[in-house]
Structure formats: structure tokens, C-alpha cells
Design a protein around this nucleic acid. Structure first.
Lengths: 130, 130
DNA sequence: AGCGCCGATTCCGTTGCGGTAACCGGGGGT
DNA sequence: ACCCCCGGTTACCGCAACGGAATCGGCGCT
């Protein structure tokens, strides 16, 4: 194993999970703010640095994760740990409370995998009779 | 079991479910539009007339259910049946696809019942240290 | 000295969602 | 004739969320 402390940064953030074609954008669920769900997914495998969270979010400005993370911290869903080291390092991790949301996300994803195509088909049929 | 084909209009819409203190407003989940979840709950027990849906929504104008219902109809979540009778009557019912969302709503509610107090406590502690 | 990295924060513009108000149209009752 | 009920629809307004650009500050490297 590469790292004993906890998580594997070498298999960190499944890129496929975040690419633009991910049906997340279409699925009729929302957990907290727009990006909260994705943050939870990112942190699911262990603590992450701020910059790491931006990897899948490379399209967005740092404001997005920063804002989301602080809101989640207020709600007791993540912890923020700033290390006063030379290259500033900050790590975020899910709290137990935050982890309780994972099953919900799983359920939402499962629903989407099963039923989202039907929903989209219905929408297309009704919205674009052409 | 009471009846699957029909529904009981005498125990129609649990008022407690919709009163302003319901934590729905605070819970960090969203299914579709703001009112979609509530519509599903309303239709869970069987078809409802437009006016019936407004009972728990008595605070809102007809636009809200109308809009929500049409969006859900487009997505294949509900069916709309207009009876060309004397007093105009329209009934809405969940489709099988729409019913697949019920477990999600149940899961969201279960989460809220279990964990929402902790989240609110954390928010209060962090947001209002005073 | 200047550049760049890390980790943010703040401001600002836009967009979309949510909500209120007003209007429509037919039938029946008084 | 008038009003009311049922079942909507449309137009308009306001706010909060979303997203982007610009800025900040310490430190190391060149």
C-alpha cells in the first residue's frame, strides 16, 4: 500500500464521475448546495487538500469549493484542518455526520442509473414532439 | 391493506406533513423543483384533484401546483386526466416512474429525522457562537 | 526583485427559481 | 344579470443562488 495513514491519493478522484456528461446535472436530486454532493464524493475516500478538490473542478474558480466547504463546515459535515507548514496546506475531511449522507447519494445515483433514462425519454417525448 | 386500485380520500393529506414547521424546508435535499416532493407525497395515496392538491398548499397560488405538475408530467412522473364533466374535474396521479421516487423521499425523510437535529445544532454552534 | 504557488476572500453581474397578482372561460344557482 | 365555483394561465417582480474576475499574503525559487 502506498499510504498507511488513510487514503489512496493515487486513485483519488474518478474523473468520469465529474465529467460534463455525468447525468448528475440532469438528475432531479440535490444535496445541499450545487457542489456539496460532489465534495462529499471527493472526500469519501479520505481527506483531501484544497487543491485536490479543484482537480475535478478545474473548470471552476476557487470560490466554488471554498464557499461550499465553509457552508459544509458550518453544518458539521466536514472538518477543516490547516497545517501551519511552509507550503500552506489545508485538508478537508468528512465528519461522521457528513458520512451519513453517502448512502443518500448512493441511493440517488442508483435511482438515476435505473430511471433517469426513462425520465429523459419522457421529457424528450413531451417537450420535443418534433 | 385498504385498497390499491382506489384511494382513501377521507384520510387524504396529512396536514402535519405540510405545516410550516416541517423540517422539509431545512433539510439539505431537494427532489426536482421545490414542490415536487410534496406533490409526490400528496399523490402517494392515489389520484388527487387539482383543488385537493391546493389544500395543503393553501398558502400558495394555483401557479405553484400547476407549474410543478406540468413539469412532472413532462418528465413522466405524473399523469393528468381531465374529465369533461359538468363541474370540471382534473385528476393527477403518479406514474410507476413517479412512484420510484417515493423510496428516495423516504430515505431523505429518514435521514432528516435522524441527523437533521445534529446538522442544525452544528450550524447554530458555528454560525452563532454567541 | 520579481514570479509563481498555495489557499483563499471579496465584489459584481447574471440567471433562474419562487411567489404574488391579475385574468380567463364555462356552467349552475339565485 | 350577477356571482360563485372549478381549473387553470399569463405577466410581472424580487431574491437568492451561481459563476467569473480580480485581489491578497506568505514563502521559495531564480
Amino acid at each position: 500500500m502506498a499510504d498507511a495513514t488513510a487514503h489512496d491519493r493515487s486513485a483519488p478522484l474518478d474523473p468520469d464521475m465529474f465529467h460534463p456528461l455525468c447525468p448528475s446535472s440532469a438528475m432531479p436530486f440535490r444535496v445541499g448546495d450545487k457542489w456539496s454532493g460532489m465534495v462529499i464524493r471527493c472526500l469519501q475516500g479520505g481527506p483531501r487538500r484544497f487543491g485536490e478538490l479543484r482537480v475535478p473542478l478545474k473548470a471552476v474558480t476557487p470560490k466554488v469549493p471554498s464557499e461550499t466547504l465553509r457552508a459544509m463546515e458550518r453544518d458539521g459535515l466536514v472538518t477543516r484542518t490547516a497545517y501551519d507548514e511552509n507550503p500552506p496546506r489545508v485538508e478537508y475531511a468528512l465528519t461522521p455526520l457528513g458520512r451519513t449522507l453517502i448512502p443518500l447519494l448512493d441511493a440517488a445515483r442508483a435511482w438515476s442509473e435505473t430511471h433517469l433514462p426513462a425520465l429523459l425519454a419522457a421529457r424528450r417525448a413531451a417537450g420535443q414532439p418534433a
